[in-house]
């Protein structure tokens, strides 16, 4: 089953979603961006706004991808893609890198997820496919250690299943860690044990958004007044 959205609903594409998240990151924050869509956020930080990007493998001040002829073999990000270092950037070893993560020094981490639950539980590292080896990387450290954890993901799976759920069915990455979810259809805060919709894409109705979640949603107060 796939979800067919009514005419007039404009879901955010990958870059639009990344740009929407980037818009909410204030100057001065130290931020770790997970592999996949979150990595795209780096390309959308408004020019002139100084946001310092951290990479697990020992980099603060991650810069854009280099031109082909300026690739440095020793300079990659957590996804093993070639990157650059911005002026003011620094290198350090893995224990210092995870001191930053586990010691609560990062203002924000943005991760992708399979599921997010009403209580902020996140599942993003393993499925039930036992034919493949599990891999966790730094996801559990980031989810437990960053001061804030935001999730960037599609609102539903490719098959149309809800990813905003009452309780995660997949193995947890961390309990109660997520404070905000950005999907291709809406922005939701997790507060008081539930999802609060703070923004919907143009043309989206609360009723449809609710139908695409496996947990109760509520509208933020200013929106509820005009809904």
């Amino acid at each position: 089953m796939t979800v067919t959205l009514p005419e007039g609903v404009e879901p955010r594409g990958r870059d639009a979603l990344a740009a929407r998240i980037a818009a909410d990151i204030p100057e001065g924050w130290y931020v770790n961006l997970g592999i996949g869509l979150p990595t795209l956020i780096a390309d959308h930080v408004p020019p002139g706004r100084e946001v310092v990007l951290h990479s697990e493998n020992g980099i603060l001040g991650l810069g854009a991808a280099p031109p082909e002829d300026e690739i440095e073999p020793w300079l990659v990000n957590a996804g093993k893609q070639h990157v650059t270092l911005v002026p003011g950037g620094s290198y350090f070893h893995h224990a210092d890198s995870f001191t930053m993560i586990r010691g609560g020094h990062l203002d924000l981490c943005v991760l992708g997820a399979y599921e997010v639950a009403v209580n902020g539980d996140i599942a993003n590292w393993a499925t039930f496919d036992n034919s493949r080896a599990p891999a966790v990387g730094g996801a559990m450290d980031l989810a437990a250690g960053a001061r804030r954890l935001w999730v960037a993901m599609d609102h539903v799976t490719r098959e149309g299943a809800a990813k905003l759920v009452q309780a995660c069915s997949y193995p947890l990455t961390a309990p109660g860690a997520v404070s905000r979810v950005y999907t291709n259809l809406a922005v939701l805060d997790i507060e008081d044990g539930g999802f609060t919709v703070v923004e919907m894409v143009p043309g989206m109705s609360f009723a449809l958004l609710q139908a695409l979640a496996d947990a109760p949603l509520r509208l933020a107060e200013q929106d509820a007044a005009t809904a």
């Binding site: 697990e56 893995h94 224990a95 890198s97 995870f98 993560i101 586990r102 080896a133 599990p134 891999a135 966790v136 990387g137 730094g138 996801a139 559990m140 450290d141 250690g145």
Partner: peptide, 14 residues
């Protein structure tokens, strides 16, 4: 295979 979170792996050796 013993799967260990990356920061825990670094810290265990540290």
């Amino acid at each position: 295979l013993e799967l260990v979170p990356q920061g825990t792996l670094a810290e265990r050796m540290r």
